[in-house]
Amino acid sequence: MTFNLAILTDNWRDLLDGMVLTVLIWAGGTVMGLAIGLMVAVVQLLTNRWIAAPLNVYVAVMRGTPFLIQLFIIYYGGPFFGLDLTPMVAGVAGLALYGGAYFSEIFRAGFVSVPPGQIEAARMMGISRLAIVRHVQLPQMLVIILPALANMTVLLSKETAVLSVITVNELTSVVQSIGSTTFAFAETLLFLALVYWAFLEIVTAAARRLEKRVGRFMLRTQN
């Protein structure tokens, strides 16, 4: 048996479909996860502990259990609770809920990083707590938390592979089926690894550019 890259070119259409689906799942899960994470962190910040308590439980459970188990529970366990989801919907929702828990912790740390005096000043000007989040806290903390957000986004790209276990035909699932029919595991798995690595590089480069943009006011500090 020899290393034969023709396996990849022969199956380029399936691989492309898988890759497109992976990117869609990843983008959907990340965007929804960011929204969930921000909402959870803001509610934890602005409400009393009785409202925050169930959210703390959500964050603890999502961070404390394997994503694989969470997906099984949503997809295979869902029907027992009247929740009959397609594999795709269950997968993206699962990824969003999983990522949201981690994103909320990153946002929470970000909120704490803005000095309380700045918030007192805004409160004395009659600015509402929500407007303070939007205009005082978020613009400053984004510079600080962007690397952590980018890191979590990269981790989510790799977690999309887990969706293969609930029959979503994303890239890992495609590669596995090509491998098991042709026995060309070396070529296909190497290709798979390279694709995920490319995701990492793209996200990192994008985050760098974004960091420079949102951090403009800090760069001015140095000159």
């Binding site: 007192e120 805004a122 613009p139 006011f217």
Partner: peptide, 18 residues
């Protein structure tokens, strides 16, 4: 307790707007 991401003008103008 100025807001460091805003210019002097924005520091004074933002509360008026908000």
């Amino acid at each position: 307790n100025l807001w460091p991401h805003m210019s002097a003008l924005e520091n004074v103008a933002m509360p008026l707007k908000l």
